[in-house]
Amino acid sequence: MKKVITKRNIMVALLVIAVYAALFFLVNMKVLNRHYRSLLAPVGINVILAVSLNLTVGFLGELNLGHGGFMSIGAYAGCLFTIYTDLPLAIQFPLALIIGGAVAAIFGILIGIPALRLQGDYLAIVTLAFGEIVRSVLTNMKVTGGAGGLKGIGKSTNYTIVYIVAIITILIISNLVKSRHGRGICSIRDNIIASESLGVNVIFHKLLAFVVAAFFAGMAGVLYGQNLGILKPDAFDFNKSIEILVMVVLGGMGNLTGSVIAAVVITLLPEILRGFSDYRMLAYAIVLITMMIWNANPRFAMVKNNVYSWLHRKRGNAR
């Protein structure tokens, strides 16, 4: 049996409560003005998106350029469900989350099965096309309200709910990557021939990482719709997918804490530095290119390796 009550888990639980208490204080004592309060939910939603995308891009090592597409599919599925059903909110809302996630996951399976069988950068191309196709379909469909957007969604979420869902997402994904299946996923990124020869079912594990990520992107989409009250296809364009990718790259591939921090920073930065938002996409491009050059630089890779092995050794000794 694995021990649940360890020192580490208690620390994590305390941290989670402390952060929430701080937010609660800031909101209720009116320390934050309305504008900043309205940013709390988007920050949490982006945390969910970045952490889940890291599973595909960082841990599995496959480039996914259509995370925004999965988000939008989930958002529309979940929000349409709340519009067309009449259930008590306590049942309807969790159901909507699950439906949004499940529909996104189904699309993940549909495009993952053909794309992940191939080696190479096919997934990047397929997901890129997928995101654009989803957007244009949503723009042209009647039920989704077309380009004008889907209106009349009950605003049934708040920062507390988003916070809880984000914590659950982080817990599930961090446990997944530490599990046996998670080791399988990381081994594929590292050396696909070796992992195959050790009995890792490569296609299954690729699909697992990809579909779990799509599921959480779908849930994030539902939260997004329920927070804004309106969905527009253009909110989930290529730029959104790139924005999430920048969070993952900036926070560090395969580093969940990094993704959380980067998601918070990148969501808040344009709001704090007014005028920056005009140059946002330019800044993202620069960040991506710099990180790529850095990562490809052997000297930087060495520094990184040293830091990692130092960290590992420290953790190893602590055990």
Partner: peptide
């Protein structure tokens, strides 16, 4: 496999655990 093909980015322990993957 030829050329060792260990998992370069993972720890020694993770490599060994992956050997017992099945």
């Amino acid at each position: 496999p030829e050329g060792r093909r260990i998992f370069q980015e993972l720890t020694v322990l993770d490599n060994l655990k992956l050997g017992a993957f099945t």
